[in-house]
């Protein structure tokens, strides 16, 4: 990895965030701020996916289940029970972590790995979508509209710059969590599980617990993203909350940027938004950007398994990979 621990590493990161903080002061066009918010929001959600999918290697196809849970917890507590939106954030995070616990407990107990885990998460998010579509408390397909009442106390800002600050703070926290994983024993256990679960278990890692905790952390973070979404758009409905597209986007952002790295999701998010915003500039048609996403995903898997970020990284001095494939190369910087 890049030398995070050095004073220069600190300086770079500090400069990066300071620069980001200045954006709302200078960028006053709302659409540019909107794009900046979306970039950071995707990066944040990608980072949430990255905790379970990147570091722990449990690639989920259904992370929308967490985002949607957070969104609905915030929306329902506000509109039905009159909670202040800020106060709905802790229950949303806990809700996401609880769903993570449920899915993780069931599927890891059953020993599901790889593709099977990916498919069962997809099925869980489908169940959640159908429930949200038919239950009374979520108002079914109508969705929930949060009444407009701007003000800091209501987590509604007329000025997009304030939303930018909030999403920047969320991103900073997620960034910090990923960074902590890089150096903590917990993170090392997750990487061990990813690289070789049986070997990790043989060395005494409680792999079940490690995976479960990773999914709970990841789920709680994703749920907070859902809460932010509700406050930003003041609306949530089942396909927005639990749609496959959301899950796929989280996975894409992380995989394309470089899963299992601190900066990967940000790089991926910037790349994807560059693709979508430039294509929209030339071709006003639905779907074109996503076609390119799909192509980029295939090319990344085929030619750059460590993601775009591996282009920026100095090559490791020791190269001889024993046998085929990405895992060995991944190990080089773990």
């Amino acid at each position: 990895m890049i030398g995070w621990t050095t004073p220069r590493g600190w300086a770079h990161i500090g400069a990066g965030f300071a620069f980001a903080l200045l954006i709302p002061a200078f960028v006053t066009q709302n659409f540019l701020l909107h794009i900046a918010i979306l970039v950071l929001f995707s990066a944040y959600l990608g980072q949430a996916w990255n905790i379970a999918g990147g570091y722990a290697g449990q690639r989920s196809f259904g992370h929308a289940v967490f985002v949607g849970t957070g969104a609905y917890v915030t929306a329902i507590l506000q509109t039905r029970f009159g909670w202040n939106p800020w106060l709905t954030l802790p229950p949303a995070i806990i809700g996401g972590a609880a769903v993570g616990w449920l899915i993780g407990f069931l599927s890891f107990r059953a020993g599901l790995r790889g593709s099977y885990f990916a498919l069962i998460t997809l099925a869980f998010s489908e169940v959640a979508r159908i429930l949200a579509n038919s239950l009374e408390i979520t108002r079914g397909g109508l969705g929930i509209l949060v009444p407009l009442s701007p003000g800091f106390a209501n987590f509604q800002f007329a000025n997009k710059g304030n939303f930018f600050i909030v999403v920047l703070a969320m991103f900073a926290v997620a960034f910090g969590i990923a960074w902590w994983l890089e150096k903590s024993r917990f993170g090392a256990r997750l990487v061990a599980v990813r690289e070789n679960e049986d070997a990790a278990a043989a060395l005494g890692v409680d792999t079940f617990k490690a995976k479960l905790h990773a999914l709970m952390l990841s789920g709680g973070m994703a749920a907070l993203g859902g809460s932010f979404y509700v406050q930003y758009y003041l609306y949530v409905e089942p396909p927005i909350a639990y749609g496959v597209e959301r899950s796929v986007e989280m996975l894409l952002v992380s995989m394309i940027g470089g899963s299992g790295t601190v900066l990967g999701p940000l790089v991926g998010s910037i790349a994807l938004h560059l693709i979508s915003d430039t294509t929209r500039h030339f071709l006003e048609a639905p779907g074109v950007a996503l076609i390119l996403y799909g192509i980029v995903l295939i090319l990344i898997v085929g030619f750059l398994p460590d993601g775009l970020i591996s282009l920026f990284r100095r090559r490791p001095t020791v190269v001889p990979d024993t046998d085929s494939g990405a895992p060995a190369r991944r190990g080089a910087h773990a």
């Binding site: 790889g114 639905p286 779907g287 074109v288 076609i291 799909g294 995903l297 295939i298 494939g325």
Partner: peptide
């Protein structure tokens, strides 16, 4: 996919995303 299970899932996911949106287009 270089014959790896997890990669194939991702590559075919990519194909699905491309086809779905090609049809949308």
């Amino acid at each position: 996919s270089h014959g790896e299970d997890a990669n194939i899932l991702l590559v075919t996911l990519g194909v699905a995303v491309i086809l779905d949106n090609l049809a949308l287009y």
